[in-house]
Design a protein around this nucleic acid. Structure first.
Lengths: 228, 228
DNA sequence: CCGGATCCGAATCGATACTG
DNA sequence: CAGTATCGATTCGGATCCGG
């Protein structure tokens, strides 16, 4: 295990020895959304071999990034330690950087609930949201659906499909103010590549319910600017 | 090459498909210091197999992260594209995160000039430096020596040993205001684990030349706070 | 020396099957 | 649910070699 080391003494090398192995950062990404059970992780990372998942979880625990905790009633969850949770701004920034290289989705690529949740988090702009009234959005892409609430410059999220335990408190009972769905259009909207009205006219984005004017607000609060 | 994909459609997955392969981010780290030739990279990454270096450089070029450019008089260099250069804040943050997990240096780990340069960059605090008079520091750790100038809230760096082409303009002719050397002491100083005076008293850090009072200033301008 | 390409054994990864 | 075990396919690492 120490045989495959980089042999360098510095922060970057140490960091990628902790979280640079294949699949490791995607496990961290999912755990940033909330604690997850072994089976949840496996479902959220459909292409990970089960032995690799087991191996990574052990390494991440040994590195102090992840902790294994028994949960109230039967079962156990993996969760980030405070040290692991400190990766959040890095993973979000990496998500923004990689977002710029995204092209059209192909059939063998899928978007998971945790992937969408983190994408929305990485696109969230607190400064823009600070003065706006509290608003609930529901975003659907294929089979996944995420509910986000923007209030007081902060973002909270819940996963509706597949359902995951609420991480931002109890899921609000009432319907979202705006419900949108669509894959390709969402990416182009977040990148500022297309205006909200165009996205809807195109059919790239569908307005399921809610005031169409709220889509402008959504596009203001959630955006990932192209890298330079 | 597309066989080993994560099969997910999101920014984080895309990012680590571009720069998540073994050694890739260390190549980026070195290129963030300045353009490097194949042999420079090999020297700065002593343990990288040459075929892996060649393979990574090709992948990074294919991904639009690195560009290969012929240099003025014979030879060619690799340099980051603007898209690759946008990784700087991420690599610096990762360096700070990993720094927290650094323990004592072992004999098989070495600190390279580019590693030290990036460590100092990641530790630099512009806010603290904004109001301070321009100051030059020279930092020596083992066989590597780096010269940094803090002026007007900005940081510039040059590599003295092993010498690399100046990336922040011409190397100042005059001697640095403060010259310090020492390995273990530097890490503990940057982490705030030890006070400047103690570090010198310990012998963990040596003051080669300059006003000892400047060491306090150094410790203020360069610091990596423990993660939470 | 620079900028790689080639070859080969060792370690890791990926897919599937299996178990407490 | 939470993983191990097994095994073939890849990749990595180390060394050598080669054209300019």
């Amino acid at each position: 295990m120490a045989a495959r080391t980089y042999g360098q003494y510095d922060g970057v090398s140490t960091a990628i020895e902790l979280i640079g192995e294949r699949w490791a950062l995607l496990i961290v990404r999912d755990l940033l959304v909330g604690p997850r059970r072994y089976t949840d992780l496996k479902a959220g990372l459909p292409k990970i071999p089960t032995n690799i998942l087991a191996a990574r979880l052990k390494e991440l625990q040994a590195g102090g990034v992840v902790r294994r905790a028994p949960i109230a009633k039967c079962g156990l969850v993996y969760q980030l330690t405070p040290y692991g949770a400190a990766l959040e701004p890095i993973v979000l920034a990496l998500g923004r950087w990689g977002f710029a290289a995204l092209d059209e989705r192909t059939d063998d690529e899928e978007l998971t609930a945790d992937g969408l949740t983190m994408a929305l988090r990485s696109a969230f702009r607190p400064e823009e949201a600070a003065e706006l009234p509290a608003t609930d959005y529901e975003v659907r892409v294929g089979a996944v659906a995420v509910r986000v609430r923007v209030a007081e410059g902060r973002l909270r999220s819940w996963q509706l499909a597949p359902p995951a335990p609420p991480v931002g408190g109890a899921l609000p009972a009432e319907a979202a103010d705006l419900v949108i769905s669509g894959g390709a259009g969402l990416r182009r909207l977040l990148s500022g590549d297309i205006r909200p009205a165009e996205a809807v006219a195109d059919g790239a984005l569908a307005l399921e319910s809610g005031d169409p004017a709220l889509l402008e607000r959504f596009a203001t609060v959630f955006r990932i600017d192209p890298v330079r």
